[in-house]
Design a protein around this nucleic acid. Structure first.
Length: 954
DNA sequence: AATGTCACG
DNA sequence: ACGTACGTGACATTT
């Protein structure tokens, strides 16, 4: 079959429309033709996709202005367009069930009897969906007496020899149709993404290949269709039975080999079995008058299509149509028919005003103008500052200029490209006012400016207001970059940095930008920062506790973090090189063992190749699926390690390879050649809980658990060989906070008595005086579970016990610690009502998902609601401590420096002579910080240690 | 750019 | 019936 006489609309522009010169043919379609691949046949499971679209977009509450819901239409059509765009199918059809009773109802009265009628809001959209399918020129396949599944099954089998068949459906039952030439495209988690399901994925996900899927479904039944299976036999049992005996017949031939329970259930099911099997079998043998040609899309009807889309106010769909279908919108297009305000499928996009409009920006490019500006700035009550530099990396960055604003709507840019006004000269004059303690500074992400200025010997101070951090405190999960803040809070469209210098290879240096343009950009940023401050401060004043979080924690922390980043930490490269040699040898040995076990060599680092080796070559049983194939993660490998020695070698290989790539090889590369140290970035506006994060490199995840991990910690050393590292960490801080928040008397008492908290928990939940190490281990997991929003499944996985046992442990825990139980419940309920959770300091995190109709989303939000007050309060406490420690390092004339923060730990470098004094000071401030942040009932303890490296300091 | 995996608290 | 403990960042592979 050639496509010459069959070119449908999706393959080429219609004859009367000349190809647009910019229309590049899709690579996939092209490649298919060149390689002589079979054409694609896409069979869409209409109703199932409509249902899915309906529920996926329920929250979006899309409708036309007069209230007709359109979510399902939007979602469905959007998916169809996506498929056309991505695959350019030769053949494409949508199958729907027919309304009549089917042969399944005749055979089995209860068939689908439990299925509720579709919601009205969905039914009302079906007509439009059909109209749109027709207008798109896509064949609709409906046959009386048959369900869409059977139509699809039959078509798939009939045409698989001639086509590559793709069944588009979210329904797992269709897995039985997967075959050599038949795969499933399953709507993914994200809108408009599809997951390709072939034989391997079916096997990985359900534990049985497509050929056994009917038997699997027969045994388990299909509750959604009200079809019973064998009682007490679930997917796990069913797949293991099939794995062993191959088929239902095989299983029934070996009944005596099974456990009594299973045997009994199967015997009871014996009579029903053939009927159930028939019901769950999708028919592939119907005698249908279907020809491939009938599944060929015809030309869309642009007029009808755009008219429908306009009527439904689906403007963004209408906008996608011309490019996807390669047709032109009618002259009087939908945008004219529908006022912009009515975009129901387009989030409202208010017109933004250019940031500079109504503002006055001055370029300072003469010494006279510069002197005049200095006078003005010195007499101000406060200034907004923004530096322009040659690089985003503060250590490489050179100043190109600094902009200032003292009142909204006016800004100045001191350009360091001005003759006679180079960076050094200008900075020397600016230094007094940049450091003037009586001249408070406002800005966006001032830590950056502070770090750049440090290179020029300037200590920017004091930080009075940082707009990025204010936004973070007001809503940690919002976006905090200047451009977004300007749009959101000021309705202003900013000029982006990329627009100034261009992107990619064509980007130019900042000194090559025309000074006037650079000035406008720089002035805009200072101006916007000042304007943002006004509105953000107003919002903070509405919520005094949030303003306090800013003023007591976040703003003072900026200079503390800048100093830590600037200081950096020294690395013992010789030690790492030593590690590298050992690891290389060990990895070579392991690689050899793994290849021997596999019988061939392959790329162990490729999960795809590894999956092939484990589950196809070695025939090990798959445990979990990922969206692209077999899962090979730690859990899976641990389970496999009892079956095959390759698994434990792989675990060790993975662990070594990880440490080698992420730390042993990467850290030396991150050493700054100028300072000889590694300078991380502490990000203050990323973590939704209030924690810091660390990047480039991340020094908050340096290994410690394994032997090699410990060796890597050993490589963190003082920058001066006479000095020591001092580590101070909070002991069990999160559990103490949980105890404080819960007010639970038993927990509080245990901490007051300085008990081993996990042992204490073990005594209580196992109701015994004799706590074995295993009981303590379990109790420890339970305690962690409490911090994370405990669930039976999670606990059962960690402890390797059944969900039932896990549930019992949790129930006992909650019964014994009623304060904890009720506080967790109250936290969730309160948060559901108010929309957010808080830390003891009043930091907030908004959780709209607590009211989600989707139970999984809702439960996830509930776990966050339980965890965030705990994790967030711990973050508040250590931030408070960092500020007071830093203050005392200055006032107490210490020569020690703070290097790192790792959530519950602070790392310092200290001269030995100062060690004792530092230890006392740090411990005192850390303990006091907890009380200042509201931990009053529970004692807080800090452990300190010193050593020649980070490992010894613990 | 996305995905799978894994390092830390 | 489904998916499953909280919060991060980096690497290698694959698309």
């Amino acid at each position: 079959m050639t496509s010459d006489n069959q070119m449908g609309l999706f393959d080429a522009p219609p004859p009367e429309t000349p190809p647009r010169p910019e229309a590049v043919p899709e690579k996939k379609a092209d490649a298919a033709r060149e390689t002589g691949q079979k054409p694609g046949l896409f069979l869409l499971d209409g109703m199932a996709l409509v249902y899915r679209a309906f529920y996926a977009l329920q929250q979006a509450r899309m409708s036309t202005r007069d209230g007709q819901p359109t979510g399902a239409v939007f979602g469905f059509v959007s998916s169809v367009l996506r498929i056309i765009e991505e695959y350019r199918p030769e053949y494409l059809a949508v199958a729907f069930d027919s309304p009549e009773k089917t042969f399944r109802h005749d055979k089995f009265e209860a068939y689908k009897a439990n299925r509720p009628a579709p919601p009205d809001d969905l039914i009302s959209q079906l007509g439009d969906i059909r109209k749109l399918i027709r207008a798109l020129g896509i064949p609709l396949v409906i046959m009386p007496g048959f369900e869409a599944d059977d139509l699809i099954g039959t078509a798939a089998r009939k045409f698989e020899a001639d086509c590559q068949v793709f069944i588009v459906t979210p329904d797992k039952d269709m897995s039985q149709l997967v075959h050599d030439g038949v795969r499933i495209l399953k709507p993914g988690k994200k809108q408009n993404e599809f997951e390709l399901v072939g034989s391997a994925e079916v096997k990985a996900q359900f534990g049985a290949p497509p050929e056994q899927f009917i038997d699997l479904l027969t045994l388990t039944g299909d509750t959604s269709d009200n079809i019973p299976g064998a009682k007490g036999i679930g997917p796990k049992t069913a797949s293991s039975l099939l794995e062993k005996y191959g088929s239902l017949e095989g299983i029934y031939a070996n009944l005596e080999a099974l456990t009594p329970k299973t045997r009994q259930s199967l015997e009871a099911f014996r009579e029903m079995m053939p009927l159930v099997r028939e019901l769950v079998t999708i028919r592939t043998d119907l005698d249908l008058p279907l020809t491939l040609e009938a599944l060929h899309a015809s030309r869309p009807d642009p007029e009808a299509l755009f008219a429908h889309l306009a009527r439904l106010e689906l403007k963004s769909i209408a906008a996608r149509v011309p490019a996807v279908l390669r047709i032109d919108a009618p002259a009087a297009s939908s945008s004219e028919n529908v006022p912009a305000a009515a975009d129901s499928d387009d989030p409202d996009d208010p017109q933004l005003i250019p940031a500079s409009e109504g503002s006055e920006y001055h370029l300072v490019d003469s010494e006279e103008a510069f002197e005049a500006l200095l006078t003005l700035l010195e007499s101000s009550a406060g200034i907004a500052v923004d530096t322009e530099t040659t690089s985003l990396d503060t250590f490489a960055a050179e100043l190109a200029g600094i902009s200032f604003s003292v009142k909204p709507g006016e800004a100045w840019f001191v350009y360091f490209g001005t003759p006679g006004l180079d960076a050094c000269k200008a900075v020397e004059r600016l230094k007094p006012l940049l450091e003037n303690p009586a001249l408070p500074k406002t800005g966006q992400n001032l830590k950056y400016d502070m770090l750049v200025l440090k290179k020029y010997g300037v200590e920017l101070a004091p930080v009075e207001f940082d707009t990025m951090l204010a936004s973070y405190v007001l809503d940690p999960e919002a976006r905090h970059n200047l451009d977004d803040l300007a749009a959101r809070h000021l309705g202003r469209q900013t000029v982006k940095y990329g627009e100034l210098v261009g992107t990619g290879k064509s980007a130019i240096g900042i000194f090559e930008v025309e000074p006037r343009k650079l000035s406008d950009y720089a002035c805009q940023d200072a101006d916007i920062a000042l304007k943002l401050r006004l509105t953000l401060q107003e919002q903070l004043e509405q919520t005094p506790e949030l303003f306090d979080v800013c003023r007591q924690l976040e703003f003072p922390l900026v200079s503390v973090l800048a100093r830590m980043e600037h200081t950096g930490v020294a690395i013992d490269t010789a030690h790492l090189e030593q590690c590298a040699l050992t690891v290389k040898r060990d990895l070579e040995t392991l690689t050899g063992k793994i290849f021997d076990a596999a019988g061939e060599s392959f790329n162990i680092d490729s999960p795809k190749q590894l999956g092939h080796i484990l589950f196809e070559v070695l025939q090990l049983p798959p445990k979990k699926a990922t969206k692209t194939g077999y899962s090979t993660d730690v859990q899976v490998l641990e389970e496999l390690s009892i079956l095959h020695p390759i698994a434990s070698d792989l675990l060790e290989y993975r662990s070594l390879q990880k440490l080698k790539g992420t730390y042993i090889e990467a850290l030396p590369k991150m050493i700054n050649p100028l300072t000889g140290r590694v300078h991380t970035s502490f990000n203050q506006s990323v973590a939704a809980t209030g924690r810091l994060s660390s990047s480039n490199p991340n020094l908050q995840n340096i290994p410690i658990r394994t032997e090699l991990g410990k060796e890597i910690r050993r490589a963190f050393i003082p920058s001066n060989k006479d000095n020591l590292l001092l580590s101070a960490d909070y002991s069990q801080i999160e559990l103490r906070i949980a105890a404080e928040l819960s007010g639970d008397p038993m927990l509080i008492e245990a901490f007051r008595n300085r008990e081993d908290i996990h042992a204490a928990t073990a005594r209580v939940i196992f109701d015994t005086a004799e706590v074995t190490p295993d009981m303590r281990r379990k109790a420890k997991e339970v305690n962690f579970g409490v911090l994370y929003g405990i669930q039976p499944f999670g606990l059962s996985q960690r402890l390797g016990i059944t969900q039932k046992e896990a549930r019992e442990i949790i129930d006992t825990y909650m019964a014994k610690y009623p304060g904890m139980f009720s506080s967790l419940q109250t936290t969730i309920e309160e948060a559901r009502k108010r929309g957010y959770v808080t830390t003891l300091m009043g930091r907030r995190r908004y959780l709209p998902d607590l009211n989600s109709p989707n139970a999984n989303i809702r439960k996830a939000a509930e776990r966050i609601a339980m965890n965030t007050p705990i994790q967030g309060t711990a973050a508040d406490i250590i931030k408070y401590a960092m500020c007071s420690v830093s203050r005392e390092l200055n006032t107490g004339a210490f020569r020690s420096v703070m290097l790192l923060q790792v959530h519950d730990e602070l790392l310092f470098e200290t001269p030995p002579a100062e060690e004792a004094r530092l230890r006392e000071m740090v411990g005192r401030n850390m303990v006091e910080a907890a009380a200042k942040c509201g931990v009053k009932k529970v004692p807080v303890e800090v452990e300190t240690g010193v050593g020649k490296n980070w490992l010894e300091a613990h």
